[in-house]
Nucleic acid binder design. Structure first.
Length: 924
DNA sequence: TCCAGCTC
DNA sequence: GAGCTGGA
């Protein structure tokens, strides 16, 4: 029987997907950075799949077909130029079309292609057939041309303008609201306006506004031509008269055929029956983790093919002394456990312990609730601490964790012994170059497990609760699944590290560093809040004054912080010359403003206003808010797995970008003080800051790696490297180097390490492009080793797909072979920079471990507070500072032996700004 | 989310 | 080249 409406039943819905249209739109709407970790581009596949699943979920169609274009279409016979302008499908997209076919195959969505026709025509015809059989139709496309098919029972879905994943549904009313006329008149609209992408000529001189008016005023194109005489203005009338034939032809081109005779068996297109396992495997291959939850429930299976949880695992909530005894028995036998803490906050210094999860085997786990507000049957924390402490201290018990630095610090703050992390799955994944290193992502990509998302437990947005408010049984399932996955991941990641020969990097640098970082995060640093609040008041006055000045000069008040409003004032009202554009308008960046300094007095005021406000909001006002209520100090988080080069990063607050250059910046730096505040002083004697920083470490590494003779010699001779560079390149003696020559040489030295081209050098020095180019050439002829090294690094990167630091840290640069020159050049810059920045990071990390260990071994009370890439900041009792300085300098300089000396400068002072060099008496 | 601006 | 944060 047919699909005609049956009494009392909702009409069924057919979803028709415009395969090319949607893929094409996704390809251009989504960034081409969307790719798998191996570099396969997936933006079109991802956008297509995301939209498909979203519509399936939201509109729940009963049937679905995806239509694709075939080769040559009848339109070529009508108009030879049709689509002649369209560029050949980009290779990146062509490849992705095959992936889309695979997606559709595993989702069991049928594909329709018909020789000589485009997807539009199939869709139009299928829609008509489906309507005749009483089905509702939903057309999913990226091409707004299809809006002409909208009718009573036909709706069109287009991707959202802002987010591709979201979609807009157009019914008849929505089309009328958007265009001002009915859907069926869209072909006439296109016939008048033309469409360059389809190479439809249209009527020259008629734009969207005029076309809309004409369509609203006349019932058809024929009527317009018949009643030509009444059309005004004459320009339009004549344009129409001269191009009437072309307009009719254009309309034909723009009209979607809806009368093909197609076989259509709805039952063959039923939504829902598909092989979930195969779909998951393909999603895994494409790294579409975020799309997994959007997969429809298969109707032919009662349970998902891949278990969400491991059904064979034994889990228990540890609630009674008997439970605890059982856990301890198990622990006593264990050689390794996976550990995870559940808490109330992301910042380890502000997180309260809510529960502890432990796995003693991949399929055996425990959850010990400690502070759930939902149950009163939890064991007392003291009892749990006493029970676990001996095990956490056991040298023969390996503790696995995912982001163990966090767990260890939280446990320590809760009174437990700090566990030593024997394997950290997050760090391992980071070293391996995995693109997603979250536990849930790794469980999916490495183990094929679909893990419960934290949001499923605690919700999201305004209704989000904290972990302590969850039910114990639910928290147990969540936390136990995490530790079991962690346990299993170790077995996958360990051999992978061996395979990449990164065991030493992992075991001798990254893992030992965890302990150092925990100490630094826990100790924190003191700031002078009184000083900052005074500074804030003072800045406030200056800012208000500048604000008044700016309003006066512009003639009216406006929001100076809004880049859009500011651009309007500068370029529209004051008519200052516009510079480069951003996506949303004209740039009002510092760089642009600097160039306009002389054009109008308001520019200077704005620059100064910006600087003051930036420093005030980012540092002066923000830092005091970050003082910990219990410790009275500021505790940053050091991230070990964020930077692509192996550097650390810092956040909450970021203490690695405290101002240093400007006068005001130095004021901010002065607020970081050695903690001699009454009531806070950590020891019974005054403390001071010791700062130890590597001098020119990356340039030294450049000398080492490149073996360049001139550069190496300059370092051995202890020369001012920028002056020495200037002398070489300008061909003068060292004494004859002017400050300007040195400045340029300095920019070049930095630029070379960043893979800078002549353009960047010209921009940063104020030279002309030609001069910059000549300068770079002169540099390379003076330092041929550097030139060879850069070339060799790029070549190797292209050959193996990654670059390495001295200690085997890797960075993958898949774009190094991209056909897009911008992306390829960017990849080349990353490739030449990483070995320098990455090796510097390795060296610093090793030094931190050694200095930290030496401090402990010598029983010193000095504490390492901060690492800022090439600088270590310590707080030391005055009586220790000499010893500490000698220790830090000698260990830092001696971390590795290179072909150039490593040099460390040490300085001492009461605050982070006013530091004086300290003469280091090297022991022995 | 983007832009701007602070660091090494 | 590498980061993080504030503001719209």
């Amino acid at each position: 029987m047919g699909e005609a409406d049956r009494p009392g039943e909702q009409p069924r819905t057919l979803m028709l997907v415009d395969g090319h249209g949607l893929a094409y739109r996704a390809f251009h709407a989504l960034p081409d950075t969307l790719a798998t970790s191996s570099g396969e581009p997936t933006n079109a596949v991802f956008g297509f799949t995301s939209m498909l699943l979203e519509v399936l979920r939201a509109l729940k169609p009963d049937y679905a077909i995806v239509c694709f274009d075939s080769g040559r279409t009848f339109r070529h016979d009508v108009y030879a130029e049709y689509k002649a302008h369209r560029p050949e499908m980009a290779d990146d997209l062509r490849h992705q079309m095959e992936r889309i076919r695979q997606i559709l195959e595993v989702l069991n969505v049928p594909i329709m292609v018909k020789e000589g026709y485009e997807a539009d025509d199939l869709i139009g015809s299928l829609a008509a057939i489906a309507r005749r059989r009483g089905l509702e139709v939903v057309i999913v496309t990226g091409d707004s041309d299809l809006l002409q098919l909208v009718d009573g029972g036909v709706r069109v879905v287009l991707p959202g303008r802002q987010r591709f994943g979201e979609f807009r549904v157009f019914d008849r009313q929505a089309v009328i609201e958007r265009y001002g006329f009915a859907p069926e008149r869209i072909p006439e609209f296109k016939a008048l306006v033309g469409d360059t992408s389809d190479n439809i000529p249209g009527v020259p001189g008629i734009g969207e506004k005029t076309a809309t008016k004409l369509i609203q005023a006349y019932p058809s194109l024929e009527a317009m031509v018949e009643r030509l005489e009444e059309i005004t203005p004459p320009r339009i009338r004549e344009a129409l008269r001269a191009n009437a034939e072309q307009a009719f032809q254009s309309r034909e081109l723009a009209t979607i055929v809806a009368d093909l005779d197609l076989d259509f068996d709805p039952e063959a297109c039923r939504v829902g029956s598909y092989d979930r396992d195969r779909a998951l495997a393909l999603f895994r291959e494409l790294e579409f983790r975020s799309l997994v939850p959007k997969l429809p429930e298969p109707i032919q299976r009662s349970a998902p093919a891949t278990p969400r949880l491991q059904p064979s695992s034994q889990r228990m909530a540890v609630l009674t002394p008997a439970d605890l005894a059982r856990l301890l028995d198990d622990l006593a036998q264990a050689k390794a456990i996976a550990l995870d803490v559940e808490t109330t906050a992301l910042h380890p210094m502000y997180a309260d312990l809510v529960g502890i999860a432990l796995a003693t085997a991949p399929d055996r786990s425990y959850y010990i609730p400690l502070a759930h507000t939902t149950g009163d049957d939890q064991l007392p924390a003291d009892r749990v601490r006493e029970a676990l402490a001996p095990h956490l201290r056991r040298a023969d018990l390996a503790v696995f964790a995912h982001h163990g630095k966090y767990d260890a610090l939280v446990l320590e703050r809760a009174g437990f012994p700090r566990p030593r992390i024997a394997f950290d799955t997050m760090i391992a994944a980071y070293l391996l170059g995995e693109t997603s290193i979250g536990l849930k992502e790794l469980a999916f990509t490495k183990l094929g497990l679909e893990m419960q998302q934290i949001e499923e437990l605690i919700g999201r947005g305004r209704k989000q609760i904290t972990m302590d408010q969850t039910q114990i049984a639910q928290a147990m399932d969540y936390a136990c699944a995490d530790v079991e996955a962690t346990y299993r991941l170790v077995d996958v990641l360990r051999p992978a590290l061996a395979e990449q020969r990164q065991e030493r990097l992992f075991h001798e640098i990254e893992l030992p560093l965890i302990d150092v970082l925990i100490d630094m995060e826990e100790v924190g640093i003191a700031i002078d809040t009184d000083f900052l609040s005074e500074l804030s008041t003072q800045l406030d006055g200056q800012i208000r004054q500048l604000e008044r000045e700016i309003y006066r000069l512009s003639g009216h008040p406006f929001n100076i912080n809004s880049t859009q409003q500011l651009a309007r004032v500068l370029f529209d009202e004051l008519h200052l010359p516009r510079g480069p554009r951003t996506k949303t308008g004209y740039s009002v960046s510092q760089e642009v403003l600097e160039s306009l300094r002389d054009a109008h007095p308001i520019v200077n005021a704005i620059l100064e206003y910006r600087q003051l406000l930036k420093l005030k909001s980012t540092y002066v006002d923000a830092l005091p808010r970050q003082v910990h209520p219990q410790t009275g100090r500021v505790h940053t988080i050091f991230h070990q797995t964020v930077a692509a080069t192996g550097r650390l990063s810092s956040s909450d607050p970021n203490l690695q970008n405290i101002p240093a250059r400007s006068e005001l910046g130095q004021q901010v730096r002065r607020a970081f003080i050695a903690d001699n505040r009454p009531g806070y002083r950590p020891f019974d004697e005054p403390v001071v800051f010791l700062s130890a920083d590597y001098s020119q470490i990356e340039l030294r590494l450049m000398a080492h790696f490149s073996g360049d003779e001139a550069l190496t010699r300059a370092f051995w001779e202890g020369k001012d490297i920028h002056a020495a560079t200037a002398a070489e390149v300008f061909g003068v003696s060292l004494d004859a180097v002017t400050p300007e020559m040195r400045r340029i040489a300095k920019v070049v030295n930095f630029g070379i390490m960043y893979g800078m081209q002549a353009f960047g050098l010209a921009r940063d020095t104020g030279m002309s492009r030609q001069d910059a180019q000549r300068f770079i050439e002169a540099y390379f002829s003076r330092f041929p080793g550097v030139s060879r090294y850069l070339e060799e690094t790029r070549r190797r990167a292209a050959e193996q797909g990654y670059v390495e630091s001295l200690f085997g840290r890797r960075r993958y640069v898949p774009d190094i072979t991209s056909s897009n020159p911008n992306r390829r050049l960017a990849a080349e810059r990353m490739a030449v920079n990483m070995p320098l920045q990455g090796t510097a990071a390795d060296i610093m990390k090793l030094a931190m471990i050694q200095v930290h260990r030496a401090i402990a071994e010598r029983g010193l009370r000095s504490r390492m507070l901060l690492q800022v890439h090439d600088e270590l900041l310590f707080e030391a009792p005055e009586s220790e500072v000499q010893e500490l300085a000698a220790l830090a300098v000698s260990l830092m300089e001696g971390v590795v032996e290179l072909d150039v000396p490593l040099v460390v400068d040490a300085k001492v002072g009461q605050n982070w700004n006013d530091l004086e060099p300290i003469q280091v008496k090297l022991a022995r």
